[in-house]
Amino acid sequence: MPSEIRRIPAIESLPAALRGGVVAIGNFDGVHRGHQSVLQPALDIAARDGVPALVLTFEPHPRQVFRPDVPVFRLTPAHMKARLLEALGFEAVVEHPFTRAFAGLEPQDFVKTVLVDGLGISHVVTGFDFHYGRNRGGTPATLAEAGRANGFGVTLVEAFSDEGGAVVSSSRIRGLLGEGEVAEAAGLLGYRFTVEAEVTGGKKLGRTLGFPTANMALPPQTELRHGIYAVRFRRADGRLHDGVASFGRRPTVDEDGAPLLETFLFDFDGDLYGETCAVSLFGFLRGEVKFDGLDPLVAQMKRDEEEARALLSGVRPLSALDLGIAFKGAAA
């Protein structure tokens, strides 16, 4: 496994040493189990052939280009996606700029410009429904034909379904997170859903109530159900702390405020301001409630802490990815 994945901003920037590799193509938002069913064959073929294993993805998300008025709730921003791909074993991810001009390439030009001249691939792996080029005119059949004509192999992977027979998709996972179903979402991701942001200062009301919190502003397009979660908090140095977090508008004390993630770390006393930290969600405890005063709020927060401690005491990693994201380090 590479010690650190290379993030390459465009196909033109690909180092010569990484040409001739196996490339998995896709947006891969979430790097979920469905994506992993495409990514793993690319790793296997690269290992078999002794060539680099790469991922070709696109920035920004295509929907941000074609529908800028509809915000995209990204499960994994580019830096988090790269970290997951690194954990899987890829050597590099090419984050090629996605523009209307790029989307307008004729399918044959996409093959020549991107795959042949740009990346010099020996093999490409994609999902069975992969389309490319202007008006999505490139199909799996034309890709296979292009591979024969240009001397690269093509592997198409069928859709991956969960144990219940339903296809695993990023949109399905977004929907589950919007309902607070973080445990079910984790089952589809193969790891606990994790957010990352800088810890910022707040009104310090939690500290006066005996529950000091690390406050993090998430992107406004985050479609996570407002409520209380059992979480694991990872600091920049890798140290882990169990905790309970509230995501929402704090209706008891500040119902007009912007949504904020506030995490109370168990058995911790320190300064986190300015640190970029990660929070992994293990369970949804309850929805957001407006209490009639601070005393009932504090009583409920104590019950939330007890429930979160109990839930987190028995958790186990779901996969190697989960082990790296939510379990690496020394728990509090």
Rank of each mutant, 00 (worst) to 15 (best):
G151E: 04
G151D: 10
F152T: 10
F152N: 12
F152E: 09
G153V: 09
G153N: 02
V154C: 13
T155D: 15
T155G: 05
T155W: 05
T155C: 07
V157D: 01
V157K: 13
V157Y: 12
E158K: 13
A159S: 12
F160N: 10
F160H: 15
F160M: 15
S161P: 07
D162I: 10
E163L: 15
A166I: 01
A166Q: 14
A166R: 15
A166W: 01
A166C: 03
A166D: 11
V167N: 02
V167P: 06
V167F: 01
V168D: 04
V168T: 09
S169W: 02
S170H: 05
S170F: 02
S171P: 12
R172H: 08
R172M: 08
I173W: 06
I173C: 04
R174M: 05
R174Y: 02
L176Q: 09
L176E: 08
L176D: 01
L176Y: 04
L176P: 04
L176H: 03
L177D: 04
E179K: 14
E179Y: 04
E179L: 14
E179S: 13
E179Q: 14
G180N: 07
E181W: 00
E181R: 14
E181S: 10
E181D: 00
V182H: 12
V182C: 01
A183S: 08
E184C: 07
E184L: 13
E184Y: 02
A185I: 11
A185K: 01
A185D: 01
A186P: 06
A186Q: 02
G187C: 09
G187L: 05
L188M: 09
L188Y: 09
L188P: 03
G190R: 15
R192H: 15
R192C: 04
R192N: 13
F193V: 04
F193M: 06
E198R: 14
E198Y: 04
V199P: 07
V199M: 12
V199R: 06
T200E: 03
T200R: 15
T200C: 10
T200M: 10
T200W: 00
T200G: 07
G202T: 08
G202Y: 00
K203P: 03
K203D: 15
K204M: 09
K204P: 02
K204T: 07
